[in-house]
Nucleic acid binder design. Structure first.
Lengths: 225, 225
DNA sequence: TAGATTGTTAATCGATTAACAATC
DNA sequence: TAGATTGTTAATCGATTAACAATC
């Protein structure tokens, strides 16, 4: 049974830890301290120890953490032992790119079905992934038992598609549209708004410059992203 | 002169507010209250008022906010009056996709130069954007006065490319690689790790399911992403 | 004036981190 | 034992939000 109350911030770092542990394991390293890990993943060592401690006492005092054991633990925690199939809703610019990318790099996630309205796409195989009509979506999601969807459709149909996804029994949506979709409470939505992120970065850059030219330039790290 | 001490969390929401204000303006709306805005952008109304207040008293008590005035204010704040040129480092899968996408939708950001090592790409124009050799990068960044770079290269050369970007005088990096690059303090790095985000989402989904099947299922929103 | 809605105070919540006793 | 490093306590920091006086 999984432990309770893992903070969101901690959960976001788990894949990062796992990836680096794999790297260490491949490199033949047997042990790692929170201090060393901290250097590599750029997370404070106390935060790392705190993060790990939510899952129990995983380390040995005076020694550090056993790389293989910790890697295996996170592998299980992150469900790396089984393949997770993901649906791609909207095979346009960004959708095609994500298909191509397909999260291949050594983690058990793959896009296994695409959906679109374009007649010329429906029934084809793109990057090894079959593309279905949006009309078949509810049915196929259910049939293929897909729990997670990536939403890369035009903004104006984002909410409609979200509704269909809910109907199809989806449990999580990675939403690349700028629309904040409304879904039942038990559905997890993670928004990734690339334009927004870039605009924020640019805002900070310009902001920082203005600060440099202003009277006082202390407190600059208040503006670090 | 720009106001000081805008919290990071507030800055991240500015593009979201701006986008919706534009929508309201296009729709002919003249005024908007924090309560109405809250419904649309899914941010608590008190948070919205607090966010706005960092920039001064932008609203009128008993009335709300003037849509056009607020839109114009954020337009200036987000530097929408001038075009920001961005470099794309690495024209592979994800890079090609971002080129195609090119952040076009009504905001003044555009990828104006691409860089890669592949001989067959160098010297070509992709989606209207010229692709240069990595060897010319430092020179071109300087020449074209590009301040922001999108890093979509293989992990193993991510740090090398970051070094070159610093050399080329870049001020901000949007890093799509899973590597946490090391750069001088004054350079802003924003990490967008798509695989990581998806893994985290899946973790929460599975976590939540386990919780449902466990003895107590209270406190469920502790696990909301 | 009466009703509406801001801007801000104060409380709360969640995340980070310094410091160190516990202990391998 | 001596040295190293965890796991956790306590302090701090940053972000959110309820509540309401101010005021349009």
């Amino acid at each position: 049974m999984v432990e309770k109350k893992i903070p969101k911030a901690t959960a976001r770092r788990l894949p990062l830890y796992y990836r680096y542990l794999r790297f260490l394991y491949e490199a033949g390293k047997e042990r790692i301290s929170s201090a060393k890990l901290s250097e590599a993943v750029k997370v404070d060592s106390a935060t790392i120890r705190r993060d790990f401690s939510y899952f129990g006492a995983l380390g040995k005092r005076g020694y550090g953490y056993d790389v293989e054991a910790l890697m295996n633990f996170f592998s299980k925690t992150l469900n790396q032992d089984r393949l997770t199939n993901v649906a791609l809703i909207g095979v346009g610019n960004l959708g095609q790119a994500l298909l191509n990318y397909n999260f291949r790099r050594n983690n058990n996630i793959r896009i296994s079905a695409g959906f679109d309205v374009k007649e010329e796409l429906i029934g084809t195989i793109q990057q090894g992934v079959p593309i279905y009509s949006i009309n078949e979506m509810v049915e196929q999601l259910d049939l293929q038992q897909i729990d997670v969807a990536i939403l890369t459709v035009p903004s104006d149909i984002a909410q409609d598609m979200a509704n269909k996804l809910v109907e199809g029994g989806i449990k999580g949506i990675m939403n690349f549209t700028p629309i904040r979709v409304t879904v039942p409470e038990h559905i997890r939505v993670h928004n990734v708004d690339l334009t927004n992120e870039l605009q924020t970065l640019i805002y900070f850059i310009n902001y920082y410059q203005d600060m440099e030219n202003s009277d006082d330039d202390e407190d600059l790290d208040d503006f670090m992203l």
